[in-house]
Amino acid sequence: MARLARLDLQPDERERLALQLGLVLEYVGRLAEVDLEGVQPDVPVRTNVFREDQPDRPLSPEAVLANAPARQGDYFRIPRILEED
């Protein structure tokens, strides 16, 4: 799960988390008691919102890239993605 969530966990952290999440899952398991025959899942947003597709002034690249941990020109710079052969 930690890998799927892109989190490196220390062994002691992993152990504590497994224990705590076990307790939380046991608690939320109470939902099995509820009779949900014929119940639809709640959709919190009840209306679709539409608008005209109009051009707007976006943030400047400079404003956005000011927060970049690493940049190269107008790009975010990141470590390599693909394994080398």
């Binding site: 989190l7 975010f76 470590p79």
Partner: peptide, 19 residues
């Protein structure tokens, strides 16, 4: 995820950097 803003801890590849 360390790409566009906030903290970044470097790693040998992008997945390790994110983790």
């Amino acid at each position: 995820d360390g790409v566009r803003y906030g903290l970044r801890v470097s790693g040998p590849d992008v997945a390790a950097m994110m983790r």
